[in-house]
Amino acid sequence: MSAVTEQTEQQEKDGVDADYGRSGFDYGKLLAITVGLSAVAVTLVPILYVVLGGFRTTGQLAENPAGLPDPWVFFKYRDVLTSSIFWHQMLNSIIVAAGTTVGVVLLGTMAAYPIARYNFKFKGVLYVIFTLGLMFPIGVAALPLYLLLRDFGLIGSVWGVIIPQVAFQLPITIIIMRPFLKALPKEVEEAAEMDGLTRVGFFWRILLPLAKPAIITVGVLAFVASWNAYLLPLLVLQGDAAGHTLPLGVQQFQTRYSSDTAAILAYTSLAMLPALAFFTVMERRIVDGLTGAVKG
């Protein structure tokens, strides 16, 4: 808030708008860079602390909690990277996220297709039912869902995480896919029909390839949601640490080895690395997906 007031005062003093005028010094740009750098610092310092802390020993951390590694030690990271549990958890996270993504993209796009391009009774009702799903947080369903999964024998299985995650991710997927599928020109459909393609054939051969950008977007969102999920894996993947996903693993590691801060730091930074790497590659998609969902 104060940033804005400052800016206004500067504008008034200058009498010229920094953004559009031709005054000698651009205070607006200076302010933007200052604010931007402060935000970057607030964001990066905690992350850097964790990453750098993994290169220290717990003794170093106790002596000087805020210091830099001196000397740099690598065995904390090495211990994590050579532990089979860490890799098991990584693999579990990948399996669950990939399964969720494939499932939700397939089912979500299929469901969005008639809602977007057919005209039928209950179309509106169907759409509303799916969108209402946004109002059901997984927390509301958690207790009965757990009992349900127990009856299905899915407790302890990755399917017990994947299938409910697909179900809970469907609403946002359909909400994003619908306008995209709707916007595809009708001529494409007519041309396909003239070539003797059925609607099902049209969906597989024409619509899916054309919808690729939107599919990547919803896929990325589903992947990230699954990668970060905690409550459902906590309920379903009980027991052996080798069966956990990474968020569960980090949390349990932190509880179990609470005295070995350096090891926790190494474990945490290695667990967040894939997400950050994925994010730097997919940033555009994620932002597009979120803003697209917001514009609905």
Partner: peptide
């Protein structure tokens, strides 16, 4: 990109951090 990065971290990792 940096400002947006914490959004991509899981709540669990954020909390442990």
């Amino acid at each position: 990109m940096v400002i947006f990065a914490p959004y991509i971290l899981s709540e669990v990792i954020t909390a442990v951090l």
